[in-house]
């Protein structure tokens, strides 16, 4: 057995596989539901990137750690343990959704599972995540905060202000760039001064590292190290190189990239390659995979049914949840 597999119990490997497959199934169903106009507005799917959320978030102890992300947030929410029913109902705008139908796809929150959203302004979640880490440090917790953002967000001033604050105050935070290579329709290489984001960490006195965002175990191992450092008050930056299969949002015709490019990445699909490796290592049987996918399919079907059957918010909900 290869070393990286031997490092984890089967249960843990299966947990990562389950998170990834749950996200994939949820997102494919969300895409269908968008096509049926059950979901409106901006809906940013996470398919292709599942290994990043699964590898990173599975390394946390969510009794004390927190996760903050941007608007492509379904995957992170599910990886933190959000009930798919609450997530799908939120996409449907129903009152049973995690945010009572007021947030929608971009604004999933699950305070119980320490998932703090769900932010629709590119880069705006990054100072907020540092504030969560600040509170952890202030309260004497040894918890850490994982702050996810994309290659597009990297060029916002908020990122660089926060890197500096994180370092000068030794905040327990890991900044994770999910470089899916396309900031909406703009290739990251066209707008970035560097061809490796992780090197910028050095400008702020932080450690920078990279991992293969299509390899869940590489993500897991890299983030585990970064989290251990963050618990000691050493923030760092991790770049996970990944790829999104779908458009920026559901309304994106994707004229900026070729079919061949997408197909090339699909051949390296994170879930299929992890599954194959688990099979080769005799950790996962065909029967187990089949049972797993069936169970997840059922779970997501139930989530859709729950969302369908749930009531719309009452008009009086317009005025609630604004002030505490």
């Amino acid at each position: 057995m290869k070393a990286e597999f031997a490092h984890y119990k089967k249960e843990e490997l299966m947990r990562m596989l389950t998170i990834m497959q749950t996200i994939r199934t949820f997102e494919e169903k969300a895409g269908m539901m968008y096509g049926l106009r059950k979901i409106g507005g901006f809906c940013h799917l996470y398919t292709g990137q599942e290994a990043v959320a699964a590898g990173a978030i599975s390394s946390l102890d969510l009794s004390k750690d927190y996760v903050v992300t941007a608007y492509r947030d379904h995957g992170h929410a599910l990886a933190c343990g959000m009930d798919p029913k609450k997530a799908m109902a939120e996409l449907f705008g129903k009152v049973t959704g995690c945010s009572h139908g007021k947030g929608g796809s971009m604004h999933l929150f699950d305070v119980e599972h320490h998932f703090f959203g769900g932010n629709g302004i590119v880069g705006a979640q990054i100072p907020v995540a540092a504030g969560v880490a600040f509170a952890q440090q202030y309260q004497g917790s040894d918890g850490v905060t994982l702050c996810f953002f994309g290659d597009g967000a990297f060029h916002q001033g908020a990122v660089h202000e926060t890197f500096n604050l994180g370092k000068i105050w030794d905040l327990p935070i890991v900044f994770i760039i999910e470089n899916n290579q396309w900031g909406m329709g703009t290739n990251w290489k066209k707008v970035s001064a560097v061809d490796d984001f992780s090197v910028t960490a050095g400008a702020y006195g932080m450690k920078g590292s990279s991992c293969n965002g299509l390899d869940v175990l590489d993500v897991r191992a890299t983030i585990e190290k970064a989290v251990a450092e963050a618990r000691l008050g050493r923030p760092s930056l991790v770049e996970a190189r990944t790829y999104r299969y779908k458009g920026h949002s559901m309304s994106d015709p994707q004229k900026y990239r070729t079919r061949e490019e997408i197909d090339e990445y699909r051949k390296r699909d994170a879930i299929q390659s992890f599954r194959s490796r688990l099979s080769e290592e005799k950790i996962l049987s065909e029967e187990e995979w089949s049972a797993l996918t069936q169970r997840i399919n059922t779970q997501i079907e139930e989530a859709v049914a729950f969302a369908e059957e749930s009531p719309e918010p009452a008009l009086s909900e317009l005025y609630t949840d604004i002030y505490a």
Binding site: I126, P127, A130, G131, V132, A133, A135, A158, E161, L165
Partner: peptide
């Protein structure tokens, strides 16, 4: 921008 947002997070 940074410290105001950090305040919100805290």
């Amino acid at each position: 921008l940074g410290f105001t947002g950090l305040g919100v997070g805290a």
